[in-house]
Design a protein around this nucleic acid. Structure first.
Ligand SMILES: [Zn+2]
Ligand SMILES: [Zn+2]
Ligand SMILES: [Zn+2]
Ligand SMILES: [Zn+2]
Lengths: 121, 121
DNA sequence: ATGAAAATGACAACCATTTTCATTTCTGTT
DNA sequence: AACAGAAATGAAAATGGTTGTCATTTTCAT
C-alpha cells in the first residue's frame, strides 16, 4: 500500500472534516495543486487503513471520508453545516450488550450516528 | 413510479431477508423466472418508497435491500447467517435526545445497527 | 552518480445503477 | 370482438464512482 500524500489529508481538514474523493480532488485543483485523481483515491485508502479517516456513504452511494480518531466513539452531525461532535457512547455500549445477551448473540459490534441541526444553524 | 412486481418481494423474502438487486435478479433467473434487471431495480425502488424495504450498503458500495416494517426500530443482524431480529430502541431514543440537548442540537434523528454472531452459528 | 524502490498520473477497465425508448401487456369502452 | 390509451417491461446504451494497469518520475540510500 502506498503512503498517503499529506496534501490530501490537509485538504480534507480544510474541507470541514468530510468530503468525497472527487470533491477533494476538485478542491486541490482549484487551489492550484497538481495531483491526479488516482493519487487522491490511494491516499484516502491509506488513511482509511491507518484509521485516520472514516468512510460513510451518501444516499447516492458516493463514499465520503471523514477525519476520525481510532478509538471507539460515535458522531453527532449537523445536517445543515456539517459540524461534527464526537460522542462517547457509554449508554449505547451497555444497551448493545444487553440486547445481544437477550437474543443469544455474541461478538457484538454496533454502529450509531446522530444527526440534527446545531445551535448555529 | 411503476408498481412493484410481486415476484421481486417474494424472492427477497426467500433470500433470507436481504439481498442486492443483482442477487435477486440472478436468483429469479436461476429459478426460471423471466424478468429484466431493470424491472428488479424499479420494483425495489417502489418497495423502498412504500417503506416495505430498507436499504443499506455493503462495504464495496453495493446497495442491499432488506425487509423492514415502517415503524421506527433497529436491527440485530448475524454476521454469519444473516438472521435478523428487529429491536425496539427505547434506550437509544433517550440517549439521542440527551446528547442532543447537551450539545445544543435540535431535530435529532439517529441510525443504529447491531451485528454479531447468533446462537445457531 | 547509480540503481532499487516507492509514488505518481493518464488512461482504460469495471460494475452497479439509471436512462432511454420501442415493444408488450393490461384495462376499460364501445 | 375491436379499439385506444395507459402502464409495465426489458434490451441496450449511458452514467459515474471506483479500481487496475503500466510507463514514467521522484525519492533515497549507497
Ligand atoms: Zn470520529
Ligand atoms: Zn459504541
Ligand atoms: Zn447466525
Ligand atoms: Zn431508534
Amino acid at each position: 500500500m502506498s503512503r498517503s500524500n499529506p496534501r490530501v489529508l490537509s485538504t480534507l481538514e480544510r474541507a470541514g472534516g468530510f468530503a468525497s474523493a472527487q470533491e477533494i480532488h476538485k478542491l486541490m485543483q482549484r487551489e492550484g495543486e497538481k495531483i491526479g485523481l488516482t493519487t487522491v483515491y490511494r491516499s484516502l485508502q491509506s488513511l482509511l487503513g491507518d484509521k485516520i479517516v472514516d468512510v460513510l456513504r451518501r444516499d447516492d452511494g458516493e463514499a465520503i471520508y471523514r477525519l476520525c480518531g481510532d478509538s471507539h466513539h460515535h458522531h453527532l452531525v449537523c445536517k445543515s453545516c456539517g459540524k461534527t461532535v464526537e460522542i462517547e457512547g457509554g449508554a449505547i455500549e451497555k444497551w448493545a450488550k444487553a440486547v445481544a445477551l437477550e437474543h443469544g448473540f455474541r461478538d457484538i459490534g454496533h454502529s450509531a450516528e446522530l444527526f440534527g441541526t446545531c445551535a448555529d444553524c
